[in-house]
Design a binder for these strands. Structure first.
Lengths: 207, 207
DNA sequence: GTGCTAACGGGTCTCTGGTTCCGTTAACAG
DNA sequence: CTGTTAACGGAACCAGAGACCCGTTAGCAC
């Protein structure tokens, strides 16, 4: 009864030798597929297990609940970062970002997946935290282009660079989730232009 | 076997004499409470029935599914319209709108409720349609203040008035659902200011 | 007031997520 | 190569959401 078993329990932490990682990978991919096709509500862990070619006991043991699995999926997605393009102008960079987001959200796989992830986050604080972290990382990757615009004098000093990036995405997500519009390239360009204009006018200067 | 039973079925359509309406009201209010407290995922029709002091059979018969109930709730909410204030300036009107939205979303009851409604809409087209309709009505109520700004020459002709109103809400919902920020009055004012600035610069002129 | 019937409501039955048990597999150490 | 044991997987088990049946209530018409 000494302190032998040291650090915690959480299956899948002790023996990271191939199998554990392989199964995690398979299950997360299966969860992605299931979420994409069935949405968050229709997500069934037994179904995920079947798709992954894995015993459902394994899924329940390692992730426990549906939201737990989704949270882990978000953590996994947060790792893989997509590189950003640089165009040299604020509007150009923001448009590149807006179009990337627009393409992602209208993609027949990614769109439904993101909807499902966001829906999952509304119901569970843990999942919400994972979602926030995911987006925080993405925002952080793009913020430098606003920083550069500040350095160029194109945007006032003291501007909240993260908030500018969020302002580009916001209308696109609003249409996806709430108003249900078309979400085409025109919308993306408009979102980027609006954000750039407001930023130049100092609307995002930190209070 | 003649065509006697004429128009459809849908219980609750034939005898709108008090009871039907009373029960609908009680169930919708109970659903609101349940959604607020448990979120969309934790919504149980039997629980709703209990809260409403109504047999669960009734709920299943009239609404059938959880999403059906939510869709009806949205239709009901779409009826009651909150009046808008008029300040005479574009920025003033947009700020009034932004603060209204901000107060709604941070309200300990309304905030969770709206989250749940949006989550429900991601999974079911019928519910999504109801949600879109609800917001379309709200946007339509506020659009005139942008129209007036166009007439005053403050905003370019051809501006998509609805889109300007949506632009005010978008960042607030983005924070609520996705990035998870604080959502205070400063954010509301910033959202209004950004939208007003972009609108004046012609960012929302229809292509 | 009285009869008709749409709509309600309690009780039961079912079916499917989710849990538990225990035998099997496969990383890793020596 | 061989032993140890964390982690997997099949199968039986359990609980609770949702469907069904049928007797009861209450609008509404005459």
């Amino acid at each position: 009864m000494a302190g032998v078993m040291s650090d915690g329990g959480e299956p899948g932490t002790v023996r990271p030798g191939g199998r554990t990682a392989r199964i995690r990978e398979a299950v997360l991919r299966a969860a992605e597929d299931a979420l994409t096709e069935q949405g968050f509500t229709g997500l069934d862990l037994a179904d995920v297990a079947r798709r992954a070619g894995v015993g459902k006991t394994t899924v329940y043991r390692r992730w426990g609940t549906v939201t737990g699995l989704v949270a882990d999926l978000l953590a996994d997605m947060a790792e893989q970062s997509a590189p950003r393009t640089e165009t040299g102008s604020l509007l150009g960079d923001l448009m590149a970002n807006a179009r990337l987001v627009q393409r992602t959200l209208t993609d027949p796989r990614q769109g439904p997946l993101f909807k499902a992830l966001i829906a999952a986050a509304t119901g569970d604080p843990k999942t919400a935290a994972a979602l926030h972290r995911f987006y925080d990382i993405r925002v952080r990757e793009w913020a430098p282009c606003v920083r550069q615009a500040v350095d160029r004098g194109e945007v006032p000093e003291g501007t909240d660079t993260h908030e500018v990036i969020r302002a580009v995405s916001a209308p696109l997500y609003y249409h996806l989730l709430i108003s249900g519009g078309r979400l085409d390239e025109t919308m993306a360009d408009r979102a980027a232009e609006a954000a750039a204009t407001a930023a130049r006018a100092g609307a995002y200067v930190r209070a």
